[in-house]
């Protein structure tokens, strides 16, 4: 199954929700739409499902233009952010719904429907909830019901709108793992919307980073982390200090911060022309060593153990940066010398 989106645009009153969006998704891929709120990701998802319509552009599924195809004929499974379970129906009836409303000719017999629903309940791990009502089960369970309901119609494309948004951290992590395993097992082409970059990086084969209605980068997580296409992408994928800088005389200068300049060769990303720039340094890209009193360009504010390392909060001449180091290197309040080993720099356009 292939999904091709070409130059999709959508405007709501004064706001441009989608700007000339183009995307090609391969069969079996698990794609994340990642971006801050208002970046257009949910709008894109809804247009794909047929719940909303673009002002311009096309959507093709398996080569077929979807503009004349209503939502109910698209064969796309949609999991809503709020799950949108049918309140007056039991879990079983919710999941069976898509099969029961099929036209006579395509409707499986009752026994078959029951068999399929029960199989899905088993796979989702919620078999004992079959007779319960949505209001009687937890958020995580509702999420699985919503997923089972969408899968029951054997869709060729699965769309998930912030599937873990309303759940607490522990539940979220567990469901993430479970969803990844499910996708590996089913091989169903899926797109999911999220604003959590960790989630996108962990689950997706490819990530489309969106900003203000446009896709600014569409690549594998590793590639995006390694070569962010713009300052926005670099900053959005967190845990990087954002520093004002200037590229001049072949090196990146960090004035007024007391950091030695970095030669071009040492940079992971370089602006094309000299001039003002913004630089991103990841927490593991700092070199820190303790300094004697009076020396040093920074002070340690706070240290936090994380796994086998320590996350340090360091005051670098008024700017707070996060750096990673071996445990026990510094004590809070201790002066130190901080240096950037590498950075990604982008031209700072006004």
């Amino acid at each position: 199954m292939s999904l091709e989106v070409a130059q999709l645009s959508r405007r709501f009153g004064d706001a441009q929700a989608l700007r000339d969006v183009s995307l090609a998704v391969r069969g079996g891929e698990f794609v994340a739409l990642l971006g801050p709120s208002g970046s257009g990701k949910t709008t894109l998802l809804r247009v794909l499902a047929g719940l909303d319509f673009a002002d311009a552009g096309t959507v093709r599924i398996d080569g077929r233009d979807m503009s004349a195809v209503p939502a109910r004929e698209r064969g796309i499974g949609f999991v809503f952010q709020s799950y949108a379970l049918f309140r007056h129906m039991s879990v079983f009836e919710n999941i069976a719904f898509g099969l029961r409303v099929r036209p006579r000719a395509q409707r499986p017999p009752r026994a078959e429907i029951a068999r399929r629903v029960e199989a899905l309940l088993g796979r989702m791990g919620i078999a004992e909830l079959a007779r319960r009502l949505p209001e009687q089960i937890s958020g995580g369970q509702r999420q699985r019901v919503a997923l089972a309901r969408a899968l029951a119609i054997e869709p060729r494309l699965l769309l998930l709108d912030e599937p873990f948004g309303a759940l607490d951290a522990e539940v979220r992590k567990g469901l993430r793992r479970w969803l990844r395993a499910l996708h590996a097992e089913l091989g169903l082409t899926s797109l999911f919307v999220t604003h959590d970059q960790e989630e996108a990086m962990e689950l997706a084969d490819r990530v489309a980073v969106m900003q203000a209605g446009a896709v600014v980068q569409f690549d594998t997580p590793a590639a995006i982390l390694d070569r962010p296409a713009s300052a926005f992408v670099a900053g959005f994928l967190g845990h990087a200090a954002r520093l004002p800088a200037r590229l001049s005389a072949g090196a990146l200068h960090f004035d007024p911060l007391p950091l030695p300049p970095l030669p071009r060769a040492a940079l992971r990303a370089t602006p094309e022309a000299e001039g003002p720039a913004v630089a991103f340094v990841r927490s593991h890209e700092w070199r820190i060593r303790p300094a004697a009193a009076g020396e040093g360009n920074a002070t340690l504010l706070h240290a936090r153990r994380s796994g086998g390392r320590e996350q340090l909060e360091i005051d670098l001449a008024g700017q707070v940066i996060e750096a990673e180091a071996a445990p026990g290197l510094l004590q809070p309040g201790q002066p130190c010398v901080v240096e950037a080993v590498t950075a990604r720099a982008y031209a700072d356009k006004p």
Binding site: E73, A84, L85, G98, V101, R149
Partner: peptide
């Protein structure tokens, strides 16, 4: 919530089915 009706549509229900069920 309109989303319930939208969900019904994505699951293949006609408008009449969505209203009735």
């Amino acid at each position: 919530p309109r989303e319930a009706e939208e969900a019904a549509a994505t699951l293949g229900a006609t408008r009449a089915q969505a209203l009735w069920r």
